[in-house]
Design a protein around this nucleic acid. Structure first.
Lengths: 274, 274
DNA sequence: TTGCTCCTCACGTCACGTGAGGTGGC
DNA sequence: TTGCTCCTCACGTCACGTGAGGTGGC
């Protein structure tokens, strides 16, 4: 039987506050070895120190308590390491995002971009291979990467000739409610399409509607798209009226051809009512 | 008079959710240019886009809304840049902390440290120059840096000969309640001390009590002190009883002599009841 | 007129922190 | 016996998100 200590002593041994320890007990992350039935005093065994030190580190890295509980519950060392590695990857992405945002902030503070050229364009309908889903802005970059990869793969395996166009449609709730319908599509050569093989669920061959759009080219990483949205949308709101249709992006230069996000070029297409 | 748009359109123009925009209105961060008296509909002017884009970036960088409000309220560009620079510095520290914690995690997962030698020591009282304050663990590193700098400066200007000892005392609430009394001290040569000049408030020449301690040397960054605390404290709890006295740290090798935290050496002194 | 947009509560989330008020153990 | 430690609520914090239930404008 290992030696047991009070919650206060355990706090000093782990550098975790007493309030936090009680909370970890409540949510089942660090359960005291014994709880006195009468006084409700908690006692911790010294063998729990390892877990506690791990919890402190994971929490410092902002791992959610649910994930921490899973790590501690892992029976094999391999399982545990995997769960942690997953979180570290998540943190990597976070760090990248932060770095990008700092860069983006510096650009914004440096002053407005050069006047962006805005043109009015009438776009015809197009046949395309598409995948749609409910996506939220925080996930959009990863989702797009994956989805355009899938689209290319599908087009190849179904022998569909792409016409080089690629774009996305965004339902308004994507912006207004932090999650909404997004359709990623690649245009197809207008040709007889063999659908003897059924497409996997979730993707479709469909007509992407045409319409009238105000268009500006966004240069740089996707993080800064809001500025170009502001420019194009301001223009439309000043001179025309926003039409009731999804906002559209058209990818001219993306990560498939440029390695540096600074070189990306994206057309922001804002629907205009005629 | 600039063109005005609805909250939904402003959301699409800024990539800020409608709920967030309403919240920013409530807390006075982004106030709509007009609010209809009857319908309570908010309208935003296109001139507010710049502020909104800035808010989005600052929030992505986790700047608190109170700070964001201050940035937007800044009248001069210089004032604004200063407020932002301050936050970026804060983020730098955050990133450093995260990197350190990842490293610390890897060490912890690599397995337990070599058996640490624990010795029992009776320490005599010592005359010291000290500064005390209520500090919380998140601030302790910065506070210690500053305070030991001050102590060295004071000792020099008051012609006090230091004996080379430096350490800190931690009240239990420092660990248990995430904030508590901390005393940083440097030992003085026992000599006649000239106190014709009064010491600045907050610091004192006092006797640091002696006592019996279990001691182990912690090697490496301060982030990992919890492990050594666990080792020493476990030892005491297994073989003795923790005494009612502050926990003490003694700095053998710190940032003044070593540039790499991996080379730091710190004695953790756990009070033992005799 | 129908839907869509917008509105205001009220409450939930996450990981604790902050007291208040009370008990147990040496 | 006195203080100290520990206990359990209940509520606060921060920045929104989640409905519910209702109104306004084209």
């Amino acid at each position: 039987m290992a030696a047991a200590v009070s919650i206060g002593e355990f706090s000093r041994l782990t550098h975790i506050s007493v309030k936090a320890l009680r909370h970890y007990h409540d949510v089942g992350v660090l359960i005291p070895a014994r709880v006195d039935g009468q006084s409700k005093y908690r006692s911790y065994e010294l063998t729990q120190l390892g877990d506690a030190h791990l919890v402190r580190r994971l929490r410092e890295l902002d791992m959610p308590l649910d994930a921490v509980r899973i790590v501690l519950a892992a029976t094999s060392k391999r399982e545990r390491d995997d769960a942690i590695a997953l979180h570290l990857e998540h943190m990597e992405r976070q760090l990248t995002r932060t770095r990008e945002m700092v860069a983006s902030l510096r650009i914004l503070l440096a002053g407005p971009l050069d006047d962006q050229e805005i043109s009015l364009r009438t776009v015809a309908a197009m046949t395309a291979l598409s995948i749609s889903a409910i996506v939220s802005p925080v996930d959009i970059e990863v989702w797009s990467q994956r989805t355009f990869g899938q689209l290319a793969g599908l087009a190849a395996s179904y022998d569909l000739a792409m016409n080089g166009e690629s774009g996305s449609l965004f339902g308004t709730s994507f912006f207004e409610e932090e999650q909404g319908p997004v359709t990623a599509f690649v245009g197809l050569e207008s040709m007889t399409i063999d659908l003897s093989k059924a497409l996997p669920s979730g993707c479709a061959i469909e007509a992407i509607a045409g319409g009238q759009y105000a268009v500006a080219v966004h240069r740089g990483p996707y993080r800064d798209l809001d500025c170009t949205y502001g420019t194009v949308g301001s223009y439309v709101n000043t001179h025309y009226v926003t039409a009731f249709a999804p906002i559209r992006e058209r990818y001219l230069v993306g990560s498939d051809v440029a390695s540096d996000p600074a070189d990306f070029r994206t057309e922001v297409m804002w629907p205009v009512s005629c």
